[in-house]
Design a binder for these strands. Structure first.
Lengths: 339, 339
DNA sequence: TTGTAGGCGTTATCAC
DNA sequence: GTGATAACGCCTACAA
């Protein structure tokens, strides 16, 4: 008996069959209390541990779940993954992670790979440029729960967990208005992506609700990047009627804006209030701490895991399509607090 | 043929046996070119994909590797994991992650779980309070490569990938000395842990090499935390002969120190130079950017993965025990640059 | 060059 | 209650 002990080893020792051992181990009702205890005891003695691979092959279930993100070392994603792992480890699932590097191609490879590995579910935040959804149809065809989080795409049979981007944006804008700002710039990243579209809409609605005219020139598209934020701030302040608040859908853009403002004679928040989005860890450590919309990544991860568990337990039932929308949380700090 | 096609399905279609199909798929030399091509083609047509679980059971190899960290959403750890994944995905390995939450108990559970899942290797950064190593002996007994990174413990048969903490600390201290500082405080976390012990030694050696007397009262132990950093800075500056430089083995401690200094009339770096350790992302975004020792997490992850690959390919050979020590990289920024 | 048969560790379906 | 036996999908001697 070199390697790990199997149910055969323990069967032999007890002079019974492997089948009986298996049943005893699985607490099968029609097995005598005596043998049950005996088996359990010797199993423990021999340091027996079931071979998950065999079980997996037999049942066609691996106890593994795949989590796919663009990059794992972005704070938002790693926090979501943390939430997922914490929810799923106690249930006996192992979390396999993969990174798309924002490449749609690689995303396809990863999905195929996960499928081969017989994962029982896939939780994914789409690569930025994923348009085609063919690879996901395969997943659905196999009745494997597929859950999008944060970045998603409309697709029948797919569940998703997102934050209410509209609400987050609305709240942030209202907050700025309440600080007395009436010329609020909106920095966006790519309004064709749904999350940014919703953020734009929330911003617009807040203006409407306070009878503030919408000015097209105050909406600027830029990459989520500090240098871009500086450039944009410069342009905005050069307008004849410059903004007295900047709401950026990215913390990095907001940071760049603040830096430019401060080094060019503007006071934040007195002259210009600034609010970011994502609540990156650095926002709280700045000398002038930055207000930001928190995307509740931990909750998002836990929620995604829970949705997965529901679907997986629902067996081959009708495909449930669950859309969970979490409330983001506006964190108000110095960059937008006049007092 | 409901589920996934198997080699049997494709065998039936071609009127040959599964064995032949298997061989063709595996490019077995003694198989006719004709059938090989035929099999390959129909396999593709039928959208055949090998079932990794079956393969795993057969070979006793899962193609999975376990990565264990305290918390996945710490920048350092998630960056290491990123490195590991990037190195291992192309080789066909799946990366399973688990978090210990710094609990030694949970660490034991996780190791057992990974063992049951038949992972082919384990890469781990120890929970802070792990003393016992019994659970690791099990891993070694099964001939499964075990690799420690960052936080490790001396153990026969175990490889490790770390940075040269001594060197990093030495470099940082020398840098401070070159800036003209001769009263350098050293903030440590827990000198009983080897990494902090080495950092203390590097600091001391730098002093010796420049004939600067070592002063016990300039070495302070504190938690890696901003508030603690403030408290400690206050105490240090109250000494009769206060420091003109602070080297903290944690960025958070350094940050706290800087904040306290700045709000209490001291100029950084003119009055006091400050250097941190870890190169957390926030250090570069501070108004006064912070110098720090980068722990090259990406390289560390890649290196750990490479060590794993070596061991795993070495079969059941003699246990190789590889100790890789990477060079940290001192990032010099404003907090320590007088000019 | 290809087919046959057995096995990896479990569980499920029959029987007894 | 428990024992045979087959099966999950694949690989690999051993034959032919």
């Amino acid at each position: 008996m070199k390697g790990k002990p199997t149910i055969y080893d323990i069967a032999k020792k007890l002079n019974i069959t492997a089948a009986t051992v298996s049943r005893a181990l699985n607490n099968n009702p029609r097995i005598s209390q005596a043998t049950k205890e005996l088996v359990l005891k010797t199993a423990k003695d021999m340091n027996y541990e079931p071979n998950k691979l065999a079980l997996a092959l037999k049942k066609g279930k691996s106890n593994n779940i795949g989590v796919v993100v663009p990059y794992i070392n972005r704070n938002f994603f790693s926090s979501v993954i943390r939430g997922i792992e914490e929810e799923l480890f106690p249930k006996g699932y192992n979390v396999i992670i993969s990174q798309t590097h924002e490449s749609a191609e690689r995303e396809v490879d990863i999905i195929n790979n996960l499928l081969n590995a017989q994962v029982e579910g896939i939780i994914i935040s789409l690569a930025k440029f994923t348009k085609n959804t063919k690879h996901f149809e395969q997943v659905l065809k196999k009745n494997i729960p597929l859950i999008f989080f944060d970045r998603y795409q409309e697709m029948g049979g797919v569940s998703s967990v997102t934050i209410d981007d509209y609400q987050g944006s609305y709240d942030a804008t209202i907050h700025l208005i309440e600080q007395g700002c009436d010329r609020i710039a909106h920095l966006t990243v790519d309004p064709t992506l749904s999350i940014y579209k919703h953020r734009l809409e929330g911003y617009q609605q807040a203006l409407i609700d306070h009878s503030i005219p919408f000015r097209e020139e105050l909406v600027v598209k830029l990459k989520s990047d500090m240098e871009e934020g500086k450039r944009v701030a410069e342009n905005l302040m050069a307008l004849e009627n410059p903004p007295n608040a900047i709401f950026s859908t990215s913390d990095y853009g907001a940071l760049g804006a603040i830096k430019w403002l401060q080094t060019n004679g503007y006071k934040v928040p007195e002259d210009v209030c600034v609010v970011g989005f994502s609540n990156e860890p650095f926002t709280q450590f700045l000398d002038l701490s930055m207000s930001s919309v928190d995307q509740v990544p931990l909750e998002m991860g836990k929620m995604a895991a829970q949705v997965f568990l529901e679907q997986v337990n629902d067996g081959n039932n009708v495909k449930i399509e669950k859309k969970v929308v979490l409330s983001p949380s506006l964190i108000i700090r110095q960059s937008s607090t006049k007092k």
